[in-house]
Write a protein that binds this DNA or RNA. Structure first.
Lengths: 236, 236
DNA sequence: CGGTGTGAAATAATTCACAGCT
DNA sequence: AGCTGTGAATTATTTCACACCG
């Protein structure tokens, strides 16, 4: 297999050395910080502190400072963090300071729900088009996005400069379709199927059954821990 | 706080003391093992090995053995693992050897997609009912599951002995509705909203935007790492 | 051999403790 | 006072290396 996609990655202004230095758990939390910052910015707040954010997000203040420390100095002792520049800095670190074009592969119930999902647009993700191979959905339009036939994948990807694919197909065809996606030139997959994909690009997984199983485990453990007492867990 | 738990490890038959002893990352992988075991069982395979599973799931064989070791000895040197008893053992450890009743809270696009999601039933999760407060969906039926009004939450939970809730409501009402859910007696929440819930029960989060952001980060890092060479990552 | 299970070492992530800025 | 940033210690997780079993 070769990389079919010769997209030139020219001309970056700066920030490049950052990438290899952010621990995975930190990256996961950066998204949370971003959301919290946007929430308080919407309320007109212009400054915040590590402890305030920590409180809202259920982590420790040291952790917030450590994580933000990975992005370079941004806070002022005695004052805290400026919301606007910090927001910008996090978006930059997560590569959200650009637009990512997304294709939905598989327009079943989940695929169609995602096509209409409101929150993506504001975050730099643009759902450009969807594909399916079921004749009964090809040609329909969901929330302004058209469903094309799977066969058009390569030309659609080229034409719309699509970066990411959301894979929402039956799990027994997931690997095969994932390979088609890669060949078409896509650089990352958000995998909604329970299949483990063997592909040479980053894959992020959303596995509903697995999350439920995880939850079941935690609930069982929780029940065992606190056999009968009232819930009064708010005090730290 | 003191270590409140003086459980003497004397008398239990087996499982019971397990709970506190399984590392979080291991629990997450147990679901994967389970799925792989069920996959190969469906093909008639009755025995497997740590390296075979590792290969399929993209982890290391040592890790598989370590993880399975948490469940007590189950493998035989030179042979491997018996699929059936191992499957049973994992289901037991994850508390999947019982049925979990689930309510869908919020019958918007995502909620309705989940009501029809096929894979839950086989795993011990039963979607019993859904609720919403939008008059236009209350009273409808999706995939055999009825949508009731949110106000009926407490009686529904009691009546159907519901354990878990899937929260798929607009994020600005998420915290409030989560509290209603808890008051109604639910013991765990699968949170599809971007909100961080402050509740005294286990919460598992599925955050679409966050997963996309994570993916974007990885793709950007990946592109930077391998500017132009061919992908040949399959060789170990 | 081809496997498992597991101490011991290595690596990763979190928390503590405190120096220093405003 | 109130808050950030960070070495050092602690804790969690993964990997190595090898004993041992069929």
């Amino acid at each position: 297999m070769h990389k079919a996609n010769g997209r030139s990655r020219g001309t970056y202004h700066a920030f490049v050395a950052i990438w290899s230095d952010i621990p995975r758990p930190t990256v996961r939390r950066l998204s949370l910080y971003l959301r919290e910052l946007e929430r308080i910015a919407a309320q007109g707040t212009t400054t915040t502190s590590s402890s305030s954010m920590a409180q809202s997000l259920g982590v420790t203040d040291v952790q917030v400072r450590r994580d933000l420390g990975c992005l370079g100095q941004t806070g002022k002792p005695g004052v805290g963090y400026q919301v606007a520049p910090l927001t910008h800095r996090i978006r930059e670190a997560l590569s959200l300071n650009r637009s990512w074009n997304v294709i939905i592969v598989g327009a079943g119930r989940i695929g169609r729900a995602l096509m209409a999902y409101p929150s993506f647009a504001g975050l730099g993700f643009k759902i450009v088009v969807a594909v399916d191979c079921d004749a009964s959905v090809v040609g329909t339009t969901v929330a302004g996005t058209e469903v094309k036939h799977l066969d058009n994948l390569p030309s659609l990807v080229r034409e719309h400069e699509i970066d990411l694919a959301v894979l929402a197909v039956p799990h027994d065809v997931a690997q095969g379709i994932a390979e088609q996606i890669i060949d078409a030139g896509i650089d990352g997959i958000l995998n909604f199927t329970p299949a483990t994909l063997h592909v040479p690009v980053p894959v992020e997984r959303i596995d509903l059954s697995r999350s439920l199983e995880q939850l079941a485990f935690e609930v069982a453990a929780f029940r065992n821990q606190q056999p009968d007492q009232d819930v009064a867990a708010t005090a730290s």
